[in-house]
């Protein structure tokens, strides 16, 4: 297991987990085609890369979505 932070909360994920796995752990089942964005350590991870990017211990992820505002 490795320890990462997702939206400020520490969580443990299996070694070798990808960003896609991380998103699926929060949003199980079919995910919306639009409206989600992931950053890892302040860099955007393009959606097309989610299945390929393996998370590392200590990574800080932000999973954002549109909300009412402005």
């Amino acid at each position: 297991m490795v320890s990462v932070y997702l939206n400020g909360q520490e969580m443990l994920v299996g070694a070798g987990s990808t960003v896609a796995d991380l998103v699926a752990s929060v949003l199980p089942g079919a995910q919306p085609a639009r409206g989600l964005a992931v950053a890892c350590n302040r860099e955007v991870v393009p959606r097309s890369s989610w299945p390929a990017v393996v998370v590392c211990s200590g990574d800080r992820f932000e999973l954002l979505a549109p909300a009412q505002g402005g």
């Binding site: 939206n7 400020g8 929060v26 949003l27 989600l36 964005a37 932000e62 999973l63 954002l64 979505a65 549109p66 909300a67 009412q68 505002g69 402005g70």
Partner: peptide
């Protein structure tokens, strides 16, 4: 219309 970007609330 504008929207903000905020942490996902599942």
């Amino acid at each position: 219309a504008t929207v903000a970007m905020r942490r996902l609330d599942p």
